[in-house]
Amino acid sequence: MEEQQSPFQAAVKPGLTIGLVSLAITFIAYFINSSLLASGWFGLVALAIFFVLIIYFGKQYRTELGGFMSFGTAFNFSFITMVISGLISTLGSILLFQVIDPSLPQVLADESFNTTIEMMEKFGASADSLPPEQLEEIKKSTMDGFTIGGQLKGFGISLIVYAIIALILGAILKKRDKSLDY
């Protein structure tokens, strides 16, 4: 009889796969038009692909377990998968922003800043009404997100988001054996 994998063991291959898919999508967007990386819809599409792949691999793992999986196992599988894929994605982004194209962070920061200003204007605030110091602070904080430290900090914050998403995915992927009910 084949021994069942723990959630950690089962999550390694999907985590690597999703991380590499995420990296491939990022690099494809970069080669098509680097400003895509700063667009909101790009992030939403990437998140949707992320969800679909985790659910797909989670259902495969549940089948491997005999068709049933507890919430805790589903949560652990989802969370570990996201941590591994997020680590790969973060390392790939650091490589892209610091080695491949060191000028890209400035381009994306400018694009993000302009998007922020446009969003403020849609809500009735004018960029002219803000003090120049505050505008500079917004620019600086946007640029800081693309530094190595900023990306590592972003990964740390992502761990909290991954835990919340894993709770949702755990609820989706769990399936209890009703034949055990009395």
Rank of each mutant, 00 (worst) to 15 (best):
M1F: 11
E2V: 10
E2S: 10
E2M: 09
P7F: 09
Q9D: 06
A10P: 11
A10I: 10
K13R: 15
P14L: 01
L16Y: 10
L16I: 15
L16F: 14
L16M: 12
T17S: 13
I18D: 06
G19M: 02
V21L: 11
S22N: 15
S22V: 05
A24T: 14
F27H: 04
Y30D: 05
Y30K: 09
I32V: 15
N33P: 08
L36E: 02
L36Q: 00
A38S: 07
A38H: 06
A38C: 00
G40F: 12
G40Y: 07
W41C: 01
W41N: 02
L44V: 11
V45P: 10
V45F: 13
A46K: 10
L47V: 08
F50K: 11
F50M: 07
I54T: 12
I54N: 04
I55P: 00
I55M: 07
Y56T: 06
F57D: 08
F57S: 01
Q60H: 10
Y61H: 10
Y61F: 12
T63V: 06
T63M: 12
L65E: 03
G66D: 07
G67P: 05
G67C: 04
F68D: 03
F68Q: 07
S70N: 06
S70Y: 03
S70Q: 06
F71D: 04
G72F: 11
T73S: 11
T73G: 02
F75E: 06
N76Q: 15
F77T: 10
S78K: 07
I80M: 13
T81A: 13
S85R: 06
G86K: 08
G86D: 04
T90V: 10
L91T: 06
G92M: 00
G92E: 12
S93G: 13
S93P: 01
I94C: 03
L95I: 14
L95G: 13
L95D: 08
Q98W: 08
V99Y: 12
P102Q: 01
S103Y: 08
P105W: 04
Q106R: 03
V107I: 13
L108Y: 05
A109G: 08
D110F: 02
E111F: 08
E111Q: 09
T115F: 11
T116H: 00
I117A: 12
E118L: 15
E118F: 14
M119Y: 13
M119W: 12
M119C: 00
M120R: 00
F123V: 11
F123K: 09
S126Q: 13
L130A: 13
L130K: 14
E133C: 00
E133L: 07
L135F: 03
E136I: 00
I138Q: 02
K139G: 00
K139R: 15
K140H: 14
T142N: 12
T142L: 11
M143C: 02
G145T: 01
F146A: 01
Q151F: 00
K153I: 09
I157E: 12
I157R: 05
S158V: 06
S158T: 10
I160Q: 08
A163W: 01
I164F: 13
I164N: 02
I164A: 14
I165L: 13
I165E: 05
L167C: 12
G170I: 05
A171G: 15
I172G: 04
I172F: 14
L173W: 03
K178C: 04
K178H: 10
D181P: 03
D181F: 14
